[in-house]
Write a protein that binds this DNA or RNA. Structure first.
Lengths: 140, 140
DNA sequence: GTATTTGCAAATGATTTGCAGTGCT
DNA sequence: AGCACTGCAAATCATTTGCAAATAC
């Protein structure tokens, strides 16, 4: 289990029970919408308010503890900051799966942006399709 | 100038003045938020309502005439459907620029998804950074 | 002890909906 | 003519804000 207390303190955020639970819940699931986070955290900490979830997501995104994953046709999800990767987004069930990023791809991106004098900071690759389990469900 | 009337009719949508103007405005700018679309279209067609803009965007995205471009930390923008490309998103001014997609990158994506038994339908690549003109503005 | 954070309730903002009238084909 | 589309106003849903009480350090 990751040490969320340290992670928070390193980013000048007090280690409250609420924050630790938000991080824990996101980490367990991988990618979650605000609504989903609330539904899960409230099970562990029934008195938490939705406003607290919102305030903390905003704060933790600012501090780069969390990353927003915007998705076509759905609400954004949030994930813990981690090394670059690609998202496979299922358009049926909405699940997001991570795949490691390929080094070659990254080189291509830099080549593209350098020629534009564009100072590249962050890559975001979403591949939309149908996951294996939804394909099965659809076939039946 | 593209023939928006044909484009609409091919997609079973009546060619109303409102829709033609929405398409025209998006095409001219490249990428626009709902708000921006409304601000521009109202100049040409002052009686249009925001509800009509919303209804038509939903409809045209369903019919794949438009594509949603979700962006971290901002409202989604919309563009006309066109061949695959990459978005350079400036985190300062919010402008989005298109770059042609590299064939190699596409092969890599397919390799990644095939191994997952993931049926790939759509690619969405956003590269976030600072555009040339914002770099200049920031330097001064 | 002090500054930050929380939870509540209210405010704001964004998007959707219902419906009567209008316009495309 | 007939159905789809528009515009308005109201409804809903999502997110933000202000403030008094609670908590981390």
């Amino acid at each position: 289990m990751t040490d969320y207390v340290t992670l928070l303190k390193e980013n000048d955020l007090k280690a409250t029970f609420q924050r630790i639970n938000i991080l824990d819940v996101i980490d367990k699931s991988g990618h979650m919408s605000v609504e989903n986070i609330y539904e899960e955290v409230i099970k562990i900490h029934p008195s938490i308010s939705l406003a607290t979830i919102y305030k903390n997501i905003v704060l933790m995104v600012e501090k780069s503890v969390l990353v927003e994953v915007p998705i076509s046709g759905r609400k954004s999800k949030y994930e813990l900051s981690k090394s670059d990767h690609i998202h496979l987004v299922c358009t049926e069930c909405g699940e997001v799966e991570d795949k490691p990023c390929i080094e070659e791809t990254d080189k291509v991106f830099h080549a593209l942006t350098d020629s534009e004098h564009f100072k590249l900071n962050k890559r975001q690759v979403n591949l939309y399709g149908v996951c294996a389990s939804c394909q099965k469900a659809l076939a039946s």
